[in-house]
């Protein structure tokens, strides 16, 4: 049986390949996967996990971290105090149906459903614990009262020598949809469910799961969108004025894109203008 029995163009990426692609993306776009305060960004050696990156990242002055605001200490406003922290996505592993690489937690109802992918993501994070800072802390007088003409003091971020780090194993189940981006049909991941293992109590777990699900959905929609032509190495045929390409409909292809045989597959039918 041929690949193009029911279509004209066929492209497939095997899960090992997609995992290598994920590694390349993480190494060449570290700031999409590593978030930290300015201080940590300036001192990457204190991050929880060294940021893997290619030489071009630093050569072309790309950041390793996306700089975010410190975590505010609630109730502290004279001056406001924030803590350094970082969150890093350090590993991402994709398992196309049938599931045989990622062991899904019970919360995600294994086995992996047909036409779905599972993903194991390792997230490490850490926050400063500034005990010495608090010991010697003196409130700023100007912060007393309601004198509106007095400038509010700037946020104080205690210097950090070490973050208190942890790592979480998150699992998600997703499927692939097609969305037109700038006129090009593109593959976009749609997250179905997320579970972080070992978080208690349940409410905290649900909060974290929700946060991560939202994060992944937005990230997949905003950043990790790939035109279908990319899967075909921009085959010149697709840009010809005389060729109209469209995803092969059902029938004859029931799932397009399809996830099976440990691969993500796309089937395209072309029409040649006379």
């Amino acid at each position: 049986m041929g690949y193009t029995d029911h279509c004209d163009l066929y492209a497939a990426v095997q899960e090992d390949g997609i995992n290598l692609v994920a590694q390349h993306v993480m190494r060449q776009r570290p700031s999409w996967f590593n978030y930290a305060t300015q201080y940590v960004s300036d001192h990457p050696q204190i991050a929880c996990v060294p940021v893997a990156h290619t030489i071009d990242v630093t050569h072309y002055s790309n950041p390793l971290f996306k700089v975010v605001s410190p975590v505010p200490i609630l109730g502290a406003d004279s001056p406001p105090v924030g803590l350094n922290f970082c969150v890093q996505l350090v590993k991402a592993q994709v398992d196309f149906h049938p599931g045989n690489v990622v062991t899904l937690p019970a919360a995600l109802s294994p086995p992996l459903a047909a036409q779905h992918l599972a993903m194991h993501v390792k997230i490490c994070g850490g926050m400063d614990c500034p005990s010495e800072f608090v010991k010697d802390f003196l409130p700023t007088p100007t912060s007393y009262g309601e004198a509106t003409n007095i400038r509010q003091p700037q946020q104080v971020v205690p210097p950090t020598r070490k973050l208190v780090c942890f790592c979480l194993d998150a699992y998600l189940v997703a499927h692939i949809g097609v969305q037109s981006i700038a006129g090009k049909p593109s593959l976009v991941g749609i997250v179905d469910s997320v579970d972080v293992v070992g978080i208690e109590p349940k409410g905290l777990s649900e909060n974290i799961n929700c946060y991560l699900k939202t994060t992944f959905e937005l990230m997949l929609k905003e950043k990790l969108i790939f035109p279908i032509s990319t899967m075909l190495f921009d085959l010149p045929l697709l840009s010809l004025a005389t060729i109209t390409a469209q995803l092969t409909p059902n029938p004859p292809i029931p799932n397009n894109p399809a996830i099976d045989d440990d691969q993500l597959k796309v089937f395209i039918t072309i029409t040649v203008a006379p």
Binding site: G2, Y3, T4, C7, D8, L9, Y10, A11, A12, V13, Q14, D16, G17, I18, L20, M231, L232, F233, L235, P236, L237, L240, I243, D262, Q263, I270, V272
Partner: peptide
């Protein structure tokens, strides 16, 4: 199994050839 597989039908191949 190769990481990436791309296939072009005879019809698509003919178009590729015509372009060359």
């Amino acid at each position: 199994m190769s990481h990436i597989t791309i296939a072009a039908s005879a019809k698509a191949f003919q178009q590729l050839f015509n372009e060359v």
